[in-house]
Every structure is written in C-alpha cells, then in structure tokens.
Nucleic acid binder design. Structure first.
Lengths: 341, 341
DNA sequence: CTGAAAGCGCTTACAG
DNA sequence: CTGAAAGCGCTTACAG
C-alpha cells in the first residue's frame, strides 16, 4: 500500500539499508547513490514511517503535555493557548511533535500518562500545573521518566526540573504596593488551594502583611473551593463585611472582572472604594473600566523554558535538575488607588 | 529493558502469541490461561508498546488537530481551549489520543500534516478552521486521508465532512435584530476575509440589508487585515465617519471590547449612541459594562460533532460525507438598544 | 484452545 | 562505500 524503503531501494537499485542511510544522510554514502536514491524517493512520493523508526530507535520525537482536568474553569483563561504557543515554538525548533492528554479527572489523566509513557508514545512530558499530592508527578518520578513542570513541585522539588514564577516574591511585592497606597484591610482571593501557586502567593501575601505590621485576618482569605458554584454569594459576602477590605489581591483577571461587576451592583466604586490587583494580565484587561492592574506572569516564556528544559533532559538524561524562574511583573493600570482617609 | 510480551509469556509459560491474544481478550483463550497471563502481566508491570502494535495493525488510535497558525491572535480567544474540550471528551470515549500541529505558518503546518499523515502518526485529522485556498485541505483530499473540518470548506464541500454553524443565517438574524431596533446604518467588522466564516457572515449581513431595503455601503465593511497593527486608528475612523453607523456587527467579543473602549474615549455611549452585537459569547461578556450581546456559536459542540464525524469516518471509510450544523444563538444583553429618533 | 512463523517498516552492527 | 541479517515489539493467518 504505502511506499516503503524497499520500493525505493528497488527503484534505485540499492538495498533497503542504503536507502535508510541516505535518509539519515549518512556520510559514507556516495553522493552518486544519494542522488539516485533521493530521486527515487521523490518519484515514489516516499515518506518514512515514523512508527517503524520509533520502534527501533526508541525515540518518538514527541512530547506529551498534561493539561489540567478539562472540566476545570482553568481552561477558560488564556493560560492554555498561550503556554502552548511557547511550547510549540520551542518543540518545533527541535522537530518535536505534541501529544495531549484529554482526561477529565486526575484518575483518567493518570491512566493516559501511563499509556503515553509505557506505550512509548512520547519521549518526555510537560506538566502544565503543580498541585499537592499529585499522583502523576509521583508516577513519573518513580519511573524516572523525563518530565518538566510549570509551577513549583510541592514535594521532591530538588529532584525535579521545573520553571515557575517567583510567586512568593511577586505577591509580596503587589501586596506591598497596596500597603504603600495606604491599604490595611486587604483580602486575598486565591484559586484552588491545592495548586502550589496559590500556596506560594498566599505566603507572599502574608509576608508582606507581617513585615508591615498588619495583622492577618482569616476571614479575608478566600479560596476557589468556596467560590465554585456560589461565586456571587461568596464575593458579595466579602464586599458586605462590616469591616470591608479596601483592597483585594485576586488570583485571576476573570475572577476580578466578575467581582468588579458585583461590587458595582452594591455601589462600591473601583478603585475609589476598593482597589484590585489580579493575575495573568489578560489582553482585554486594559479595555476594562477601570482598566485592570494585573501581574503579567509571562505565560509564553514559561512554555518556552519548560520545553527547553525537557528537551535537554531528553537529550542528556541524568543531568542535574534545573530550576528556572521566569520573571513576573505587575502592570499598573487603574484598578488601584490610594485609600480614602 | 522494558518488559515485553515475551517476558510475560515466559513467566506465564505460554507463547507470545497467546499473550497477545489475551491482550485482545480473544474469546478462544481459556479463562485459565487468561488468568495466568494477566497475573504475569500484573507482576511484571507489563504495558503494551503501542508503536509496535500500530505498526502491524496500521492504526494509531490518535487524531491530529490542525490549529490556526500559532501566531494568529485567533488563539487568544477561548475558541481553542473550548473546542479542544469538546474534542477531548469525544476522543476519550473511543480511547483516541490527540496530536497537535505546532506550525507558525501555513507552509510549516503543511509539512507537519504531511509528516502526520505519511509518517503514520494519526488515523485522521480535524481542521480547526476553514479558509479559502487551503493547501492543507487540498493535500488531505488528494491523499484521501480521513478528515473533518470545523467550518464550511470553501471548495469541494460536497466531498468533505464538516461541522459548522449556519453563519449566513445567524448573521442575517442578528442584523435583522438590529434593523428591528430601528438601525439603518450598520457596520460589519469582520475577521480575516480568507476565513470562510467571515465570508458567510458577510453574506448573511448583506441579505438582511437587502431584504429590508437598506443600501449596502462599502465603507461600512471592515476586515481584519485592515485592523491588525492599527486597530485603534481603523476603529476610530469608523466611529468618526460623518455618517457614523448606529450599530455594529462584530466578528469577535474581544474586538468588540476593544472597540467599546475607543468609543468611550470619543464620548460615544454604548448602547445609546452605538449598538453592538458580537460573536463567541465569552464568559466575561456578561460582566462588561454594558454587558455584551453576543452570538453563542457553541464551540464545545462543534468540537464534539467534528470528532464524532471523524471517528465515524475512520471506522467506516468511504461512507458518505456528512454536514452537521450546530445551532448558534444570540444571547441578548445590554449592548444594543433602539436607535434614537 | 495454543504455538511457530511470517511480517509490519524501519535501523544498525557486522562483514566485506 | 554497500549489502545481508538480525531485531525493535507486536499481531495474525495457518496448522494442529
């Protein structure tokens, strides 16, 4: 059916081995035969069967990407396309393809990962997120399979190559920015507390409070879990607190946008009554009213670096693990202002 | 190194052929040997090498997805994650994996597609977009490789299975909605004119005008090409036309959001001075001020249906081509109002 | 019900 | 510089 190395060999009057060698541009093959063989390939429209090659060379030239559960709202935000753009760019440079998980639950994803790994579908894996007690990370580590994570591994970080923002630092910085604007009552609206970036950001948030002598108030910390399915009530609840916060650190621009709309229903003006700084710097943030002050976490670069690391890891197994920090920076716009006296 | 069918056979005291058969749960193998073999697999942690299997059964159980050029802004909007969610869901049901193109130009993507097809990496392909003169579609058609497109193929539609919204109809409908609100000067802000959905929407737009006796004005049609890199000038230009439109049909919520912000800089109020209906119904649309009236094109369902069709096509090659229409509907919010007399 | 053999399409020592 | 042979890990007629 499909044209194989044998057909090409026959047409060019050489053995299959020789065809294979010109495919690899082996230096010891004469230019003459190379020409002949290439002509034959051209004529027959030959293209190597990658499966067959993979089977013998034991390398697939593809990387697997583990996405968050496809049911998560996470996927709604532009993180995914953007990180993929970074990964693609870098993978393509090395002629690597991309294979995706599709699972809707951690268990399903784990099964897919096992199949990718054991089924020899990929040479390495990029984990797009880092959460606590992640079975997938455990599995990969245990099987010594090359992988890189975007985000800080909660355990075994010293044995894992990862790229991340310095979430503690940047969150401390933005919190201090709010403090310098005179805010004392600042709430933290986190994402899922199983996500390590949430843990790190909360840490930075607390550090800023502490170093500035502001007491930490438990009721001013809200997590995603409390938000899902009753976002509106929960957010409204905060806004109605008798000692309502004057500023918010919000894990995601989308939540910030939602929250702003609720605030305005309650006649709370942004930023006069409530300052907000969020994360991710979505492209429409600058067109909002008020425009959103947000942390640009450089998603594209996270993807690029993670891929570079993974490809390194595949090429030189057993090299030392690396830790890459991608700079995040606050983009100041108009959703924050000095607290009213 | 890795454990193979041979190792399992040895441990279970059967031939590799038998192991292979219990893998396939062949009915003629006795329960007793099945048990024995499965035990051995368990003990050794055996997992089949999918590459090897693919090589002989000539099926990869994976589908390839061709994305728009990764450089396009298209990727910024939630179309991509959402369609992928639909594809994943459906693919997973049939145990199919997903392989992605990464190319940054049509030429690169074509090369990748050729490699996917000839390299036997995938059993079928989903094209995530439809544009005029698409080399990739031509290639696939010519090679009789199973594929499905999301969007209407510009050529050869009768020979291609595709899923699409009825873009002509829905755009006609929303245009009539604006006309019924009393608007006569309506502008159309399209995406790239090479995209077939833009062509179709423009057609629906014109139909609505014609049937309502409104003259078609060329200067009220703007394409993406004119927008890229100088979006602001171009949009502002429209807003400054001496006979400024009172309503807009905009190809994408993101553009609408951007446009709204420029309008307000010019003290044009939405919707009082300018009504807007856009496409895609992004999740934050309802939190905008004003909230966005937008067409929900049901991206998720487009992904699901495209995958179903493709899997059918893979299972029953040479079946008749299908055309699936996924309903789109306008979600009415507050960005449109009756034209001022 | 099970095994031996051939074969999927390639690569790569080994030999000359 | 090139070919014959073995092998990657599986599946599947063919035979018994």
């Amino acid at each position: 059916m499909a044209v194989t190395i044998k057909d090409v060999g026959k047409l060019a009057n050489v053995s299959p081995s020789t065809v294979s060698r010109v495919l690899a541009n082996h230096p010891k093959i004469s230019d003459e035969t190379k020409r002949k063989v290439r002509e034959a390939m051209e004529e027959l429209g030959y293209h190597p069967n990658l499966q067959a090659r993979s089977l013998v060379v034991k390398s697939t030239k593809t990387i697997g990407i583990v996405m968050p559960h496809s049911t998560e709202r996470v996927l709604e935000n532009p993180f995914f396309p953007e990180v993929l753009r970074g990964i693609s760019l870098e993978a393509r440079k090395s002629q690597f393809g991309i294979y995706l998980t599709t699972g809707a639950s951690e268990e399903e994803i784990l099964q897919e990962v096992i199949e990718m790994v054991q089924g020899k579908r990929v040479d390495g894996i990029i984990l797009l997120y880092s959460k606590t007690n992640d079975k997938i990370m455990d599995y990969l580590l245990q099987n010594k399979f090359p992988f890189t994570v975007i985000g800080r591994p909660y355990q075994n970080a010293e044995r894992i190559t990862f790229v991340d923002n310095d979430n503690v630092f940047i969150t401390k910085q933005i919190t201090e920015y709010l403090i310098q604007l005179g805010h004392q009552k600042i709430a933290f609206i986190g994402a899922n507390m199983e996500m390590v970036f949430t843990i790190d950001r909360l840490k930075g948030f607390k550090q800023a409070l502490k170093e500035n002598g502001i007491a930490y108030q438990k009721e001013l910390i809200i997590y995603d879990k409390e938000l899902v399915d009753r976002t509106k009530e929960k957010l409204t609840e905060i806004l109605n607190l008798e000692s309502r916060p004057t500023a918010l650190v919000v894990s995601d621009d989308f939540i910030a946008i939602e929250l702003i709309s609720y605030a305005e229903e309650l006649s709370i003006s942004i930023p006069e009554d409530l300052s907000i700084v969020a994360f991710n710097n979505i492209s429409t943030g600058k067109y909002m009213k008020p425009s959103l002050t947000s942390v640009d976490i450089n998603i594209f670069q996270l993807g690029v670096e993670a891929t570079k690391c993974l490809l390194d890891d595949i090429t030189y197994p057993n090299a030392v693990t690396k830790r890459i920090t991608v700079p995040a920076k606050m983009v100041e716009r108009n959703s924050c202002c000095r607290v009213a006296e």
